[in-house]
Design a protein around this nucleic acid. Structure first.
Length: 193
DNA sequence: TAGCTGATTGACT
DNA sequence: GTCAATCAGCTAA
């Protein structure tokens, strides 16, 4: 399984965050293939972005400062995993947080992992929810997103959707910077603002 | 070593 | 609307 090519990720986080909307996150982790269309993202920049782990989490630096196209998976609040795509060329730190996806393949398997109905929006409409649905854990930290068990691919369908933007959610620093992007009117976008 | 924080979620009033 | 769960990684000492 091949995903979006490396150069796609070697651009500013803000650009990648917008362009990656509508693309499909494919997980071949575990026995069943599961996949979801990315409908909501947030961009995190370098040390100048106070909300970015690049600014206050030294242990993430090796990934942040490396070439884009790799996964950055970390535990939050001691119980949930969050998935990011590292962006930018080596030396220019940045990443894109995948906040919500729309189930495309393997909804029954996601439902089993999540413990909710296969049609429920709670399946994947949040950063901690989609990682559980797609069986993404810390084991995927550093994984290559262009080729492997976890990849992001482009759809052949036209990008005929509107992109909305606003402040990022859930953070305590740099609260007002509008670096959150989502597909307007998509019901799988996470609530709570 | 001890204490604190957090890019969340789900249960409860 | 409020709040607890639960821990890696940070800081202070």
């Amino acid at each position: 399984m091949t995903g979006l090519p490396r150069p796609f990720y070697l651009r500013p986080a803000k650009t990648v965050a917008r362009d990656i909307l509508g693309c499909v996150l494919v997980s071949r982790i575990g026995r069943t293939v599961t996949a979801g269309r990315i409908v909501e993202t947030e961009a995190y920049l370098g040390p100048d972005d106070a909300a970015s782990h690049a600014a206050f989490r030294p242990s993430s630096r090796e990934l942040f400062y490396g070439d884009g196209g790799r996964a950055y998976v970390y535990r939050i609040y001691g119980m949930h995993w969050c998935l990011n795509a590292i962006t930018g060329k080596a030396g220019t730190p940045g990443c894109v947080l995948i906040r919500a996806v729309e189930p495309v393949v393997g909804a029954p398997a996601m439902a089993r992992r999540r413990g909710v109905a296969a049609t429920a929006r709670e399946l994947t409409n949040g950063p901690g929810k989609l990682t559980e649905a797609l069986a993404i854990t810390g084991g995927e930290n550093g994984a290559d997103l262009t080729d492997g068990r976890l990849v992001i691919t482009a759809l052949d369908t036209p990008r005929d959707f509107a992109i909305a933007s606003g402040p990022r959610i859930g953070i305590t620093r740099a609260v007002d910077v509008p670096l959150r992007f989502w597909i307007r009117d998509n019901v799988w976008v996470s609530r709570r603002a």
